[in-house]
Design a protein around this nucleic acid. Structure first.
Lengths: 196, 196
DNA sequence: GACGCATATGCGTCAATGTGCATATGCGGT
DNA sequence: ACCGCATATGCACATTGACGCATATGCGTC
């Protein structure tokens, strides 16, 4: 359960509610791990059942009561054990790559617009990383172990986004140069299948 | 169904059996998309049910009969429609990053050995990409649209692996420099939970 | 006052993925 | 004779993920 461990990792920083965790997974951690609130609440229940976290209810008026989750000693141990296991390099699983693999059997134009969108997306994220880096690590050095982890994380993120952005640019250039040779037959058949 | 589309993309090259597809997803396409044979057979059944591929049985003696799958015109159309939709940038979801995020709450030593393993892994893959690039594209240019897609793919793969390898090296250096400050308490409690 | 938005939790369903197991046989090694 | 390996297909179960929907209310705005 990778998401569960990611949640435990977040809770090492400070106790949080499901709602706060969902926001975390939508911003900072979300840069490399996406999870919506339903996924997080479900995982929190599991972690609680296993005794890895403890929920403390905070009564509120006007809003549903909060459940602030704290890591238990068992949870900390579980996280340490998980972190002591070798990680498995994930595969990229980017639709764009599949399209490139079958580039001669599909229409180029949509791929071009897709690449342009992706270029913008990855540039935005790159700027975001750089901004956070400059703000949190103006010296480019980390003081403690926690800081070091986050500094490395941000650097990896920044480089990754820049690399993909550069790739999109290069791919667009190459497609432009090639566009004369391609046989472009637009999709014009009316029917469409649901989403598969 | 992303895997289904990846399979359709593979079948544009030539008709294949499930077994051949499994091998493909373990080598070339497997560099960015992992799928074992069970997943592939299951997906092939679905694609056949939808009429996107057609299976031709080849009787064999000694071995189970082959089922060579060919793209139908409907399958080609479905692939083109899928490829015309915008792609969604995937998240990285690397366990290693989660560990870095909680670096002060876990043991550093296993992370170091993990980083060393990963460094070797990514270097191997990088060399692999470079080797294929040199072999298939000695000039560094593509002749047709299909070639262009594969050239771009290989270049992205090579850069990605190099970047991650560099990152591992840098992280190892940083951890070494930091190692004096870290409080290293080895894991010695006997009990272990199953796998989570 | 109706509408959207933020706060805060959760259920249900289906698709996608991962892991283990089962079947059937020839071929080469020990 | 037995073992492992390659060929070739597939089922069953569990986990993970994506998506929609439901509940409950204060606060600002149109």
């Amino acid at each position: 359960m990778a998401l569960g461990d990611a949640i435990l990792a977040c809770l090492t920083e400070r106790p949080m509610t499901g709602y706060e965790l969902a926001k975390t997974f939508d911003s900072s951690v979300g840069f490399f791990w996406k999870a919506d609130h339903q996924q997080i609440y479900r995982e929190l229940s599991k972690l609680r059942d296993r005794g890895y976290i403890q929920g403390r209810e905070v009564v509120q008026s006007g809003k549903p009561n909060k459940l602030i989750y704290t890591l238990t000693p068992e949870g900390r141990t579980a996280l340490r054990h998980w972190a002591a296991r070798p990680s498995t390099p994930p595969s990229i699983k980017d639709d764009l790559l599949v399209r490139l693999h079958a580039l001669d059997s599909i229409d180029i134009e949509p791929v071009r617009t897709d690449l342009m969108d992706r270029l913008e997306h990855h540039r935005d994220r790159h700027e975001n990383y750089e901004r956070i880096l400059k703000k949190r690590f103006p010296e480019g050095t980390a003081s403690g172990v926690l800081d070091l982890g986050n500094l490395l994380l941000l650097r990896l993120g920044a480089r990754h986004e820049q690399m993909v952005a550069d790739f999109c640019e290069e791919a667009l250039d190459a497609l432009s140069a090639m566009s004369g040779k391609a046989t472009v037959v637009p999709l014009d058949d009316g029917k469409r299948e649901g989403k598969g």
